[in-house]
């Protein structure tokens, strides 16, 4: 009865019913996978369709989704940012320490948020600099800063949570509209829209795709490639900072272990969303769907009484399936 396999079987059968269906569904097939997963959980456990579950699932999705937005930009340029999870944790701690020091008022809130965002931005810019100016491959560069960020997190916090956060922050974290849409979800949605438009409609977006598609071509047409790459990693860091603050707000506590392993889920979300690690391909809508798939698996498996560890198993299988299907689609063209 309680069986995590339905997701995988659904995928398999779709895959075998000839690639034609894939062609027709085009870029929306992951969306269909999401709908099927939701329906399966809803049938297995009707409480899955409750307003409360919607609220909590979407709210918990924001953590990965915010990281995945930045990661989308990075992956489109054919880079990778392994540091986002660690930077999330560090940003939460630096923001928390600033707010703890300043007390429980509006000024403390504002300064804390700025400190958190700045922490993320600085790490992002450093990543960009190391990648673009020092010519270190993104994997190694961000593996390095990941270690640096998580080390500093524990040095600063001594491993302890910071719970003395300003009330406006924590009430934002737990706030919602009609017990249905939480404030963190609203902020995240807004950032999705802005970044989605930037990627699809702006010069910045075209240059991002161009760099991932053919960096040499981008350089020869006069695009300042290093500067663009630094900005891209800056965005990724900034999103990690934002995610760190929102996680602290939601749990009314900044924890040094926040964000651990999140980078893997963020990368998974982007890849499930149709991006190519070779660059040039990916979009925010796909990333949103990918992030929600991961969040739905986490909450759904718990609701149907399956051990939560199955989530990583299911996500792992979906990543492989997603990449396989993308390969089929692009080979068929």
């Amino acid at each position: 009865m309680s069986n995590p396999m339905p997701t995988a079987t659904t995928l398999n059968s779709t895959k075998h019913q000839r690639i034609n269906i894939m062609e027709k569904l085009g870029d929306y097939w992951t969306l269909c996978v999401l709908v099927v997963i939701i329906l399966v959980f809803g049938i297995l456990a009707p409480s899955f369709f409750s307003a409360f579950n919607f609220l909590s699932t979407t709210t918990s999705a924001t953590e990965i989704l915010l990281l995945a937005i930045g990661e989308t930009f990075v992956i489109i340029t054919s880079g990778i940012d392994l540091s986002v999870g660690a930077v999330l944790g560090l940003s939460g701690i630096t923001a928390g320490m600033a707010m703890q020091a300043l007390g429980n008022d509006a000024l403390s809130l504002i300064v804390g948020i700025l400190v958190g965002l700045l922490t993320g931005l600085i790490f992002g810019l450093v990543n960009g600099f190391v990648v673009a100016k020092m010519n270190i491959t993104p994997f190694i560069a961000t593996l390095g800063t990941m270690g640096i960020a998580s080390g500093i997190t524990f040095l600063l916090s001594n491993g302890a949570d910071i719970t003395a956060l300003p009330t406006p922050l924590t009430s934002f974290g737990s706030g919602n509209i009609a017990s249905f849409i939480s404030y963190p979800v609203i902020v995240t949605a807004l950032l999705c829209v802005i970044s989605g438009i930037a990627l699809a409609k702006s010069r910045f977006g075209v240059h991002t795709y161009a760099i991932g598609s053919n960096q040499e071509a981008a350089r020869r047409t006069g695009i300042n490639v290093p500067r663009h790459i630094i900005k891209i990693y800056g965005i990724s860091g900034l999103m990690a900072g934002a995610s760190g603050i929102i996680v602290a707000a939601r749990f009314a506590s900044a924890s040094p272990i926040s964000g651990q392993n999140d980078e893997l889920n963020a990368i998974a979300a982007v890849v499930i969303g149709g991006a190519s690690l070779f660059g040039g391909r990916g979009n925010i809508l796909g990333t949103v769907v990918g992030s929600i798939i991961i969040a739905v698996l986490a909450s759904g498996l718990v609701i149907v009484n399956v051990q939560a560890y199955w989530q990583t198993v299911a996500v792992g299988m979906i990543i492989i399936a997603a990449v396989f299907v993308e390969q089929l689609r692009h080979r068929n063209k």
């Binding site: 161009a210 981008a218 020869r220 047409t221």
Partner: peptide, 14 residues
């Protein structure tokens, strides 16, 4: 020196 993932117009104006 074309970006294969971009469309014709985007490449012309890159």
């Amino acid at each position: 020196a074309l970006a294969l993932h971009l469309d014709v117009a985007s490449n012309l104006f890159l």
